[in-house]
Amino acid sequence: MSKKLIEFINVSFRYSEDSPWVLRNVSFDIYEDEWVAIIGHNGSGKSTIAKLVNGLLFPGEGKILIDGREVNEDSIWEIRKKVGMVFQNPDNQFVGATVQDDVAFGMENRGVPRSEMIERIKSTLNAVGMQDYRLTEPHRLSGGQKQRVAIAGVLAISPRVLLLDEATAMLDPKGRKEIMQTVSNLLGKKGLSLITITHDLEEVVQADRVIVMNNGEVWDVSKPRDIFLKKDALRKIGLDIPFVAILADELRESGLSISREPLNHEELLEDLWTLYSKM
């Protein structure tokens, strides 16, 4: 088993004494080099988790360890170096006047020397495929491009965890594809864990593990394949089921014995072909 990077230990959170708990007794671990998707209906506490990981909020009860260190007032700057976040609205996180200024922002905050900044701007913009837009102003970029710049800005500080908090929710399908492409290119890199908070099923099925949130509690943590076995229960808590999973169910209903839970078209077709050949 690889190393634990993030530990949530019985974490509860509420905004003030007299408001209801947003998170209740949440515990989970995230390991090195892992891709974890967090899903749940709006208001289920997903985004609160993101803010807690980054020390933008602190737990009311329980504790959070990042790379072994507890998140608190003293450790937040250390922790924000380890956890990079990309938020939902592409416009409201773009600080710089141009693409390169924005990528530089996080490094400037940490006093990275200028010569090194230039190097890292180049390499991170390459990594997200935005090298041709170094001097472009934000209002000339599409939403997907802005989010790629935001990812580059996070990568430039070489974090251990890249956390995408509904980073594709406001994008069109083209923008989503761009981001997913970017992310899967990054996954080859060693030592980077990925957390995606999302409604997008495509992001969910590609993840190593899924944390399902419901009304501020952890509803389930397991592999995507196992999660989608619980179709009816998932629907009940307001979540979507991938097309192939629904089709597989209908096929079972009609008498075909599809044993494994397919995650994509190819898997289902393969199983159908096996059945076909056997008959």
């Binding site: 629904i246 209908e250 209903e253 076909y276």
Partner: peptide, 12 residues
């Protein structure tokens, strides 16, 4: 999807 499953089932 149900109708599709039915057709596929026939083919298989």
């Amino acid at each position: 999807i149900k109708e599709l499953a039915e057709t596929i089932q026939h083919v298989v």
